[in-house]
Structures are given as C-alpha cells and as structure tokens.
Write a protein that binds this DNA or RNA. Structure first.
Lengths: 257, 257
DNA sequence: TCAAAAGTGTTCGAACTACACCCATGT
DNA sequence: ACATGGGTGTAGTTCGAACACTTTTGA
C-alpha cells in the first residue's frame, strides 16, 4: 500500500557539506589561538537569493552521495578534504518554500596546509564559526549540529590532525583541540593522553625557529587507529578517514505487508 | 555549475526502518535471557522478489522522513515505536539493479508490552538478531550497522527502557543490557550505575509472584535525562525520544561559485 | 642568565570492578 | 529452614585533573 506515487511527485535530493578549517595562524609561531572557519556561498537564485548558504547541489543520478559531497567541496574551496563523513539527512516537507527538497548533509575537515590556496571571491567567503551571517533556510541549525558533532567526536577520536598538516607539534595539536572545544587544556595531561592513544608517531625532526626550546614534530598514523566500527565498512558515523570509498551500501524500497 | 539536471533524471527516495524488540519472555519470571528480534517483510515484486527486506516504502512528497518511518513501522508491526531515530542514508548508485534509489534509514525500539499484538503472517516475520535469513540488497549490512549503533548507544544512554514496558524491575532492565551487549553484568554495579544516572524512579510498587524476594518496580523519567545535544532539537544522533517532531530542518541546494 | 615553552613526575579524587555479605520472600 | 534472587558494603584499580618541577633553546 501507499507505494506507487509515480515518478512525478517526488522530492528532490540535494547534497550539502559543512566544511571546517582553521584560520591561518597569524604569527606562524603557534602563539595565537587558531579559530574555526567555514566557507559559505552566496545564493544566486531564488529561493533565498543573496543569502549565504552551505555549498552543495542536486545529486546527479550516477554519482554517490559521498562523491557528490567531495566534488561540491572541491568546486567551492578548491581543496580536497582530509576527512569527510555523513552528518544527517534533513527533509522536513516545508523547509524549502517552492518544492520538496531532501538534503543529505556531510561534514568535512580540511588541511591548514592548503587553506592558503582556498578560493574566496565575492560569492564564496570564509566565516568565523562564531560570526556567521544570516543564513538561507535552516542552514544555521545544520551548522550548529555539525559543530556539536565535531566537538563531541573530537573528545573520543583522533580527528584533530585532519585540520593540520602532515607534521605538527604537540602544541599545535593541542591548539586545535582548544579552539574546537573552546577551553584551555593542560599541556602535560594532553601530551600523555595523545601519546597513550598510540596514533602519533615522533618523526624525530624538531621545529626550529621558535623563540625557545624546539618542539618535536609528530605525524598521525592511521594504521594505529583503535578499532573501527563493524558496520558498513568505514561506517560513516564513527570511523575513519574520507577518501576511502564505499561508505554507502545498497537498498531499495520494499513493499509493506 | 552542474546544477540543472532537470526533474527527470532523479534518484528516488525511500525510507526504511530497522525495528528492534525483545523476544517475549517465555517464563514471564525474567529467568530466561530475552533476545533481540527484528521484523522483516517479504518482497512481493522485483527486484529481489521473495527475499526478506526491511520494512519501508517510497517517501510521499508531503510526509516528513520521520513520519514516513513511523508509518512504515506501524503498517508493518501494528505497533507504535517508543524510540525512533535516523540511522544513516544509503545511496550508492549501484545498490538497486534497475533504478537509482537513495534510502534514508531509521531505527526504532518497541515496547515488549505490545509485542504480543505484533503482526506476523506469511509476509511479515520476526527474526532473531543472530538468525537472519538471506536479505535483499545490502539490508544485512544496514542491520549490522543498526545493531552496532544500538549497542554503542546503550552504553552511554538510557534507551534500554524503550524495549520494556512502563514499569520494570532492575533485573529486567539489566536483562535488556545483557541481551543487547551479549555479556553478563554485575547486578550490584549495574544497579548503582543506573541509580546514579538519576533517570529511574522507584514507583514504590513491588513485583509479586516471583519465586523469591519481590523486586522493586521502576519507571523511566524522561525529564531527568542528562543534557540533550544543542543541535536540531532532538538532534537525531544522540538525543532523545521519538514522537518529538521536527528533527529535520530546511535546506535547498545552492549554487556553487 | 633569563624568559618561555617543552617535557616529566607526583598526588589526588572520581568512577568503575570484583566480590563478600546481609535481606526478604515462596516453598 | 533454606534456596534464591534482591539489595548493600567495601576494597582494589584505573584514569584523568591539578600542579610542582626539570630541561632546552633563543635572545
């Protein structure tokens, strides 16, 4: 029952992404606390023309959800995400004034290394996490949710490195945590916690040019990641690292009774 | 760019639900360990006709995602879910042989009180969690993921009660945890952990008719639930309790650059 | 030699585990 | 009275927070 609606009266499927990156370190010496930044695009057509919105687009019939999110991200920022994960699917019937649109939303983390190359013109701008403009639709709620996810996940998972470059100091890594969690962390305890996680590798190199004692440079070792969740491969919610394809799996609607 | 595809070449949107309930307690005295059961429907048409699949259907244009999941659940089991939450959206292009189908999957917990009334005929059957039949599409992966979610969430959230009735003993609640987590729990420590969570209320009543000392009956107090996540109201992933509407929010595809 | 961050050691208390033990009821 | 789960007490352990302290560099 209630199955055949014909292909005409369907909701349209969109994919959007909440992209996070760190503000460039002003001094380059790690003294300044970095802040979280999010790129938004200006809507050029109705509904919501002129307002800022999340980068996204309609889902092409032959493209996977994750691939669409990655493409969107690249088209907007010019960068490749180091981390990409499905966030939630928003689909209230009344969210878009004209037609029914269901949006599968992803969230992404981008290297600070490459942020300098980021696109930014009059229609694409990066906003500070706590200085967001008036947004189209309910994109503000979506971003709030993505921020909550990021903060929650940071506390039990080693994703902070995805916002840094290949090599980083312990202080830089701590700076990411402090910026995201919005609170100071004890350097001694932070170091021990990270070392205990076993996901960091001391490269042997040290960062010269600081005003004082040169800190060790670490890199993240993905192979040492704890245990990944059992489900659909990279399991979307609590695993892994972008790029790895096939988060998604098949399914088709089934008859009821 | 890459925006207008026309309304013809779209993916179709389906909603499915993984429903969990406890097997009826055989003896009624809580001695038997209950087990998790999942209702499946037999597909009547191609593709995958004859195979078992998750209850679900096409998304009507004017129905919210959650409402569609709840309706599906009711049509299949004849019951109302006590807990309903979005799980993940599956959308690989090749999952369904004929056309592109994107499925928004929910998971639900159902009262054991009402499970007796559950529908079950030749096209709707309840299967034990570890005795699933050959499933259509990748529904097995989806169920595995839902099971992982259930187990993970049980450990930090008080959702176990949603599988029981209004009033329950501490041993029954522990039985749910043991059945879901597949391991024995220390009765003393379990009791203290639950009492410390502050979400249980002693009704003052006691369960008579047991072979020995009558245990106290508790009920769950939703108002004492810890702090709900900030985002979109009930916040889908880590909050809340079904029924409460408006998980979802608006969004429409936006132009890029 | 001094400032400042890198990095180490130690103590404290909360939270969880294991397990001994008493309590109340039906038979 | 006794078997059986209901329910309480308590000691050991683990883990993170707090903070004193030593090390290493540039200026």
């Amino acid at each position: 029952m209630s199955q055949q609606h014909g292909h005409g009266a369907q909701a349209r499927l969109a994919v959007s992404t909440v992209i996070f990156a760190l503000s460039p370190d002003v001094d380059g010496d790690g003294v300044e606390r970095p802040s979280l930044r999010i790129p938004l695009v200006r809507r050029l057509r109705e509904p919501g023309a002129g307002r800022w919105a999340l980068p996204g687009g309609w889902l092409p019939v032959d493209e996977s959800l994750e691939a669409a999110a990655a493409r969107t991200l690249h088209e907007t920022t010019g960068l490749a995400p180091k981390y990409l994960e499905q966030l939630y699917t928003f689909g209230e019937p009344d969210r878009s004034p004209d037609e029914r649109v269901v949006s599968v939303v992803y969230w992404a983390l981008v290297h600070s290394d490459e942020v300098e190359r980021a696109v930014a013109d009059e229609n694409v701008q990066w906003f500070d996490e706590d200085e967001l403009p008036h947004l189209a639709f309910d994109h503000h709620e979506i971003i709030d949710y993505a921020l909550w996810r990021l903060r929650t996940k940071l506390e039990y998972s080693g994703i902070a490195h995805a916002l840094l470059g290949e090599r980083f100091t312990m202080a830089e890594l701590r700076g990411v945590h402090e910026a995201v969690l919005r609170k100071r962390l004890d350097p001694a305890n932070f170091r021990r916690t990270m070392e205990a996680s076993g996901t960091l590798v001391d490269t042997g190199e040290r960062l010269a040019g600081t005003r004082h004692r040169p800190p060790a440079l670490y890199r993240f070792d993905a192979s040492r990641t704890p245990a990944a969740p059992p489900p659909t491969d990279a399991a979307a919610h609590d695993a892994a690292h972008a790029s790895s394809a096939s988060h998604d799996a098949a399914h088709a609607a089934s008859a009821s009774a």
